[in-house]
Write a protein that binds this DNA or RNA. Structure first.
Lengths: 141, 141
DNA sequence: TTATATGGATACTAATATAGTATCTGAAAA
DNA sequence: TTTTCAGATACTATATTAGTATCCATATAA
């Protein structure tokens, strides 16, 4: 939902770029590689770093590298790191106590949302960063 | 107020209200019942009507009723009717031809998105409007 | 027939989330 | 000590979502 949010997509792109080239790269280099706004990419890299998916080295010759092997990083890890909005939002209008639908719908929808998020997570958990790199290499070859 | 898209949530609320009370109701009545903005609810009702989930009668004593039995309407039907945004968006930065990651990532992410949407749909398909009404009644009783 | 209530549409404003720009700080390496 | 990096901040721009006001055509009850 909710989404015009491209951060997950960009996060996977930069992680795949790092994994494919297997090295440490400055955020500016990665941004150019993605053809994206440098600060926007930087902000996503900070999230990946805080989620301990990327490790950083500061100063001259510093940059971003992977903190773990591509095989051990799932798309769910990356998805969670950038913290995208939920699959859908539940409205916040006040309850009307005299109406049992109004009084209970939010809780019902909340359960539906939890199930939906689990479905999304379950799917994203099945693919690793290593898979993504393999697919890219297979496609280009 | 536009934190994210709440239309699916409101659509289920309105449909559950119609199903629970089993009748034909004017959009203004439904909006009051949901404690929501009348025109916003109206716009959602129009979508439900176009998706043939609600049937409308115009003029005095007109309003919205269900077009099918609650048992035959899934949450996926309602979800599709309001046409919410995808689970995530894929960035639109131009490809860099010399980079195989950049050249292929969008197609890979597109497949991931399709799978994710299928997971969401699969989950929402499992619950019907009749289920929602049952749950609400059980909770209130 | 006529007054009225309805669905449906449109134009506009307001609020919010996302993305883009510019600039700065502090640390680490050369 | 100079350069280069991560990371942060403040601001602007844009897109999406939600809210407000108003109108029209039509069906129906009176």
């Amino acid at each position: 939902m909710a989404s015009v949010n491209t951060q997950f997509s960009i996060a996977v792109h930069v992680m795949a770029a790092i994994a494919h080239h297997d090295g440490v790269f400055a955020s500016e280099v990665l941004a150019r590689s993605v053809n994206a706004n440098p600060v926007f990419v930087k902000r996503i890299l900070v999230k990946l770093s805080k989620a301990k998916l990327a490790k950083t080295t500061v100063g001259k010759s510093g940059g971003y590298g992977l903190a773990r092997s591509p095989k051990s990083i799932s798309l769910l890890d990356i998805y969670s790191a950038v913290n995208p909005p939920d699959a859908f939002a539940i409205h916040t209008y006040p309850k009307r106590k005299e109406c049992i639908v109004s009084s209970n719908i939010k809780e019902v929808m909340s359960d539906v949302l939890v199930g939906t998020e689990e479905a999304v997570h379950g799917h994203l958990r099945q693919t690793t960063l290593a898979d993504v790199v393999s697919i890219i290499r297979a496609r280009s070859g």
